[in-house]
Amino acid sequence: MAGMGPAPKPDGRKARRNKDTVPQTVLRWERAEAPELPDFRIEKGEELVEFHWPERTREWWQMWIDSPQSEHFGSSDWQYLLDTALIHARLWRGDLSAAAELRLRVAAFGATPADRARLRMVFAEADGADGGSGRSGEPSARERYGNLRPITGGKSEPGKRAQ
């Protein structure tokens, strides 16, 4: 029955208006090339010594350079990942307290299938691998078995198999 109940709130007083209250900032995209792992010195005692990257961290760094995600990294992404490489190096030198921070940082880049799902990343290569034909390149079941016909070995009674 129309007219029953309280009157609707004025638009300015409604709790939900289903729109963003903060406007979105659109940035100009600039892809950046991956930097090399830098050479630098660290303090050890009272002297400066050359820092040596663990081989495992060098392999890890190359993995990120070669990853599909890196096509979408800007300069600030590479700088953040470079700082993350230092954490990776700490972990591979035996500092296990670095593991949690490393896990959080690489998750932001889509390191695992779960991270990529959360970030809504998918691999496009799977869609284009068949050239858009929807086929794997192997003969289809129809092509492989299209000429096969059922064998009928004479008449048999319903429910019994022919011999």
Rank of each mutant, 00 (worst) to 15 (best):
S136H: 12
P150Y: 12
F123N: 14
D130K: 04
T21D: 15
H52A: 08
L86H: 11
G128V: 09
E50S: 12
Y145G: 01
A32I: 08
M121R: 12
G137R: 05
D20Q: 12
E46P: 00
T57K: 00
H88Y: 02
V26Q: 12
A7V: 09
L82N: 01
G94Q: 03
A117S: 02
M1Q: 14
L27P: 00
R56E: 15
Y80E: 13
E30T: 13
R144V: 15
M121W: 11
M4L: 14
D66N: 10
A98R: 06
E143I: 05
G137F: 03
F123G: 09
Q24V: 11
T112P: 08
V49E: 12
G137E: 06
W92G: 01
S76T: 15
E71C: 07
E143D: 14
R103Y: 03
E33V: 10
S136A: 15
L96H: 07
G137K: 03
R105T: 03
P54E: 03
F40K: 07
L148P: 00
A124H: 12
E143H: 06
T84V: 09
T21L: 15
A124N: 14
G94A: 05
G3C: 04
A2N: 07
D115Y: 03
L119M: 09
M63P: 01
R142W: 05
A32M: 05
D11Q: 13
W64E: 02
R149L: 08
H72S: 13
G74P: 00
G159N: 04
G94M: 08
E138F: 02
E55N: 03
L27T: 11
R17N: 15
D127T: 05
R120D: 11
A15G: 02
K160S: 10
R149Y: 00
R56T: 14
Q79H: 15
D39K: 13
R58Q: 09
D127I: 02
E125G: 04
N18C: 04
R41Y: 10
Q79F: 13
S67C: 07
R17I: 09
E47P: 00
S140H: 03
R142Q: 09
S136V: 11
I87N: 02
S133E: 08
E101F: 01
W64M: 01
M63F: 04
G74K: 10
H88E: 09
A124C: 07
Q24M: 07
E43F: 10
Q163Y: 14
I151F: 07
R16M: 03
W29D: 07
N147L: 13
D11G: 07
L148F: 11
A114Q: 12
A117K: 08
K19N: 11
H88C: 02
K19Q: 13
E101M: 08
R28H: 13
A162C: 11
G154L: 05
P158Q: 09
V49L: 02
R105E: 14
V26N: 10
